[in-house]
Write a protein that binds this DNA or RNA. Structure first.
Length: 591
RNA sequence: GGGGCUGUAGCUCAGCCGGAUAGAGCGACGGUUUCCUAAACCGUAGGUCGUGGGUUCGAGUCCCGCCAGCCCCGCCA
């Protein structure tokens, strides 16, 4: 309905100009979707702010606007007679035939009315980013799920999206890992093929334990870091083996979640780190303080009111994460072939890194690495908390492994499903049970995360996310299943445009109006980067559909109502499937 | 000390650029099954939007103070 909205916006503004062109006041129709169904489809609040400057009652102003508006034949074609309500709101209701026409246009449209962007510069979404040689844990859950959903929405809008996995594949911890590897599995370094190093987490723990206890191991580890940074072939080979092993483990999770990522770890930027510091020096931003290369931040002061530095070169000459992040920004905005030529770079990381990114972005900005119309954004999200409101931990107090968390969701779903089958005396084969349990379980985890505003902390609860009622994945998936049921029972949902759509019931019109909101919601998510807006919409759509399904017969209806209702079913399932798909959630035929 | 985020119904959360009587879901209570999957639907109860000021036609929303919780603050990421 965005095109309708824009048309109305123009008509309202023109009407206001005709009515009050002498006023010399800024005119804004303040057009918005109606706050309640009884107010129609849209409301224009623009009369109210004019009351004082014009010295007229707001309802009189609204009346004057409406008079001009109704004189516009284009408006009369779109809307019924506007209503003035309350202190001076102008309520607009679209003509039923316009609504039906809008719906008709979406029936044959795989994009469901969502336009494709013209601009073709790449958008980078930086998300997930686990550390090599460590396991993915609950801390990676939100970044991975939210980042994937945002990437999908941007891709759907037509942006070329680069999904970057900025894995932690460099740093001092590799000294001890490589030293340990060389001593424990020297044969791995001489073999041509990748070897299975087994449980990397245990491997990491062993290396860490030795590093903490054994002084000579520490010394060797430190020397190993230097060798690695110096490009020693054996050290590099060992490093590569560790990365490969980690990569295989990460990939299992990504496959399970259906998430596609391009790995480009921190090490990728190593060749560019020195240039970052050189550039900063060249533009006069670099200050050496206590031996460290710093850029002092503007508008950020520390304890004694002194400006706070961003350290880009340690006093020992080494680089740190700020250097790497700066190198990444510089590379991502730089034109090809030595850069990505991005127009927008989005970082999906936890809110705790907000000040770090603010500092890095400021320095990149001042260094001139972010070209003018382009933008860099931190997309923060809150902590994952347990039922107790504290950071989520296992019963023994350990960090929750992502794999365990996902497995438990699937197991719980399976147990639920088996119970239900028994209660209903339904019989399904094993493959069906596994498929439904996996699909619903993972969908529930994703949806629960995506459906709350990402900025606040998120309270993780299997019971809530797997509930079959309320704003949950199972509820939405069930709406899709119901429509699939109608199709199985003889409803033809595959037909093209229906000759004429006719609606008579309130539930039908409610569904029509809800379906037409889809394009606006997508535009909002693209701009605000808030997936919960899409979740809320899909939940409301499911509710409106369930009301319709409950109260209005489809298959048993007489023509022409039957075809029109089937068209509503078809558009509902298409919208839910597309919307859930953009959240990374596949739908089911039966459950 | 400085900075950031959060505070809305018993619980979990929405709330768009400041707009009409602040909304859902869960839980509670009460209904609905010859009928497309009741994993659903309908209804009732439940609020000093942390708090005190300010801005204005109008504030949950914007500004200032305060309270509470969480997070960040020089060589980890």
């Amino acid at each position: 309905m965005l095109t309708v909205l824009h048309a109305l916006q123009g008509q309202l503004l023109a009407a206001m100009q005709r009515a009050f062109q002498e006023a010399g006041q800024p005119l804004d129709p303040q057009l918005a979707p109606a706050s309640k169904p009884e107010f129609g489809d849209f409301q224009a609040n623009g009369a109210l702010p004019l009351a004082k400057p014009l010295g007229q009652p707001p309802r009189a102003i609204a009346t004057a606007i409406v008079k001009q508006l109704t004189a516009d034949p284009a408006f009369a074609e779109l809307c019924l007679e506007p209503q003035i309500a309350g202190p001076g709101f102008i309520n607009l209701t679209l003509r039923p035939e316009r609504l039906a026409a809008e719906l008709q246009a979406r029936l044959g449209d795989p994009r469901l009315g969502v336009p494709t962007v013209e601009m073709q510069a790449p958008v980078i979404v930086d998300f997930s980013s686990p550390n090599i040689a460590k396991e993915m844990h609950v801390g990676h859950l939100r970044s991975t799920i939210i980042g994937d959903a945002l990437a999908r929405v941007l891709e759907f809008r037509g942006h070329p999206v680069l999904r970057l996995n900025h894995v932690g594949d460099w740093g001092t911890q590799f000294g001890m890992l490589i030293t340990h590897l060389k001593q424990v599995a020297p044969e791995a370094l001489t073999m041509a093929d990748a070897v299975d190093l087994g449980d990397l987490v245990a491997f990491y723990r062993q290396a860490k334990a030795r590093f903490d206890d054994d002084e000579s191991f520490q010394t060797t580890s430190r020397e190993e870091v230097v060798k690695l940074q110096g490009g020693d072939p054996v050290s590099l080979k060992a490093w590569g083996l560790l990365c490969d092993q980690s990569r295989r483990e990460f990939q299992k999770i990504y496959d399970q979640l259906g998430i596609r990522l391009t790995e480009r770890g921190e090490s990728f930027y190593n060749p560019h780190l020195q240039a970052v510091v050189d550039d900063l020096r060249a533009v006069g931003l670099l200050v050496v303080d206590a031996g460290a290369g710093c850029v002092f931040l503007e508008g950020v002061s520390g304890k004694d009111g002194q400006p706070l530095p961003l350290i880009v070169q340690k006093s020992d000459g080494g680089f740190n994460y700020a250097t790497t992040d700066l190198a990444a920004i510089r590379y991502r905005f730089a034109p090809g072939p030595g850069g990505d030529g991005a127009s927008r770079v989005i970082y999906v990381t936890d809110a705790g890194q907000a000040s770090h990114f603010a500092g890095v972005f400021q320095v990149a900005q001042r260094a001139g690495w972010i070209p003018s119309p382009c933008g860099v954004e931190h997309v923060p999200f809150g902590l994952v908390q347990g039922d107790d409101g504290k950071k989520l931990k296992t019963r023994s107090g350990d960090t929750v492994r992502l794999k365990d968390l996902l497995d438990e969701a699937v197991e719980r779903t399976e147990a639920d499903l088996r119970q239900r089958l028994a209660d209903e005396q339904r019989s399904e084969d094993e493959a069906f049970i596994q498929q439904v349990a996996t699909s619903v379980g993972l969908a529930a985890v994703k949806y629960a995360d995506l459906s709350t505003n990402r900025i606040t902390n998120y309270q993780f609860s299997f019971d809530r996310m797997l509930a079959l009622t309320g704003n949950t994945a199972p509820y939405l998936l069930y709406a899709v299943v119901r429509i699939a049921g109608i199709a199985r029972k003889g409803g033809d949902l595959g037909a093209g445009a229906v000759a004429s759509l006719t609606f008579s019931e309130a539930q039908e019109w409610a569904l029509v109006r809800e379906l037409l909101k889809f394009d606006g919601v997508i535009a909002e998510v693209e701009q605000e980067l808030l997936p919960n807006r899409l979740c809320n919409y899909l939940f409301e759509l499911s509710q409106v559909f369930n009301r319709f399904y409950d109260q209005v017969p489809v298959l048993k209806a007489e023509e022409p109502a039957r075809s029109s209702r089937l068209a509503l079913c078809r558009l509902t399932t298409d919208t839910l499937s597309l919307g859930l798909g953009l959240l990374g959630i596949p739908t089911l035929e039966r459950m």
